[in-house]
């Protein structure tokens, strides 16, 4: 392994090696995560409803998703006649590509991050806007009423929930004193480090709600509300295009939970086990919460969704931010 890395470094240089190894690792992470999450989600859905979930292929049905993927790849990709061809084909790619960049920013361990950016936290949220464009491109180019309505809802929902998401993250940034994800983790570890879930429980709550809404997950899944909009923005997508949107959704879930684990749960901090394992465990704990929320709460109506964001979450996160700033100032003055 080391020999291989040395050869790589000889030919590509240090930066190229990081890029190559990182992208291979991330591609693996994306696929494995999506396959695991689909299985896990179906399993939890079954268990919550007193069923067993997938059982047929592999122990406890673990190979079910693999077979689903094979089936999906074999499906015919239908491009409807009246769509805007170029935009239609580009949309899934635009929706998915930012995920790769965002994943490369996550701190999987103290020093295990592919690109260490000074304001990594903001960059993650900035790329979110790009993927939103992808969703809307798909919605608009489909030339379908349901898709367009779904796209509209996705856009307005994302605008509304980006604010509380950022504001709750900002409260943590104030505590950590940095926008760098690695430094935020570092602020929670060490001698008298405390996970920010202790100092910022309100921010964690806001963050989880807003993150669920940002990823268009139930109970905020009105952009693809099956009962009203067929499948929302990806109504017209089949085969691979659909698969890429699907993959993007699960990757974004991983990303928001990864950020959540970094901000509130101390990233790779934990006893006994190595850092990356702790990080993955925390991420999947948050993902489990998201899945549970999906099978527990009914979907919000659109006006309820907007009211929740604008009238409740944003004021609350502003108050939280102000209170955090005030407390920090007092502590600073006091000491």
């Amino acid at each position: 392994m080391t020999a291989l890395l040395d050869t790589l470094e000889g030919t590509l240089g240090g930066w190229g090696t990081t890029l190559l190894v990182g992208f291979v690792a991330l591609a693996g992470l994306i696929t494995v995560n999506a396959m695991f999450m689909v299985w896990f989600e179906r399993k939890v859905a079954g268990w919550v409803q007193g069923r067993l979930g997938p059982m047929e292929h592999g122990p406890q049905g673990t190979l079910q998703t693999l077979l689903d993927v094979v089936k999906l790849l074999g499906k015919e990709s239908i491009i409807p006649a009246q769509v805007d061809r170029k935009v239609f084909l580009l949309a899934p790619v635009v929706a998915f590509l930012p995920a790769l960049a965002m994943l490369s920013l996550l701190p999987y361990d103290n020093n295990l991050t592919m690109t260490d950016v000074e304001s990594g936290l903001l960059l993650v949220f900035a790329f979110g806007g790009v993927s939103l464009m992808g969703i809307f491109m798909g919605a608009w180019s489909s030339n379908n009423k349901f898709a367009l309505l779904g796209g509209m809802r996705a856009v307005s929902q994302n605008i509304a929930y980006e604010l509380p998401l950022l504001l709750s993250a900002m409260a943590v940034v104030l505590c950590a004193g940095s926008l760098n994800l690695g430094e935020i983790v570092a602020a929670q570890t060490g001698e008298n480090g405390l996970w920010f879930i202790v100092m910022q429980p309100v921010a964690l709550g806001i963050y989880l709600i807003a993150a669920t809404a940002e990823t268009n997950r139930a109970p905020f899944d009105i952009p693809e509300a099956e009962s009203e909009l067929v499948a929302g923005f990806h109504t017209e997508y089949t085969g691979m295009g659909f698969a890429v949107f699907f993959l993007a959704e699960y990757t974004y879930m991983f990303i928001v939970c990864g950020i959540g684990a970094t901000l509130f749960l101390g990233g790779g901090d934990g006893p006994l086990l190595p850092g990356p394992v702790w990080f993955i465990l925390k991420v999947y704990f948050l993902l489990f919460l998201m899945v549970m929320a999906r099978w527990t709460y009914p979907r919000l109506r659109f006006d309820q969704l907007m009211n929740l964001a604008w009238k409740f979450l944003i004021p609350l996160s502003l108050i939280n931010l102000l209170a955090t700033a005030a407390v920090l100032k007092f502590v600073e003055v006091g000491s």
Binding site: G46, G50, M292, A293
Partner: peptide, 27 residues
């Protein structure tokens, strides 16, 4: 508001109980 938020946990408790509980599916 607080009471409404607490109801969220009531719902979560129900589903968690079900999650751990007996499964009725016959294979």
């Amino acid at each position: 508001m607080v009471r409404s938020m607490l109801t969220l946990f009531v719902g979560l408790k129900v589903t968690l109980k079900k999650l751990m509980g007996r499964k009725v599916t016959e294979q």
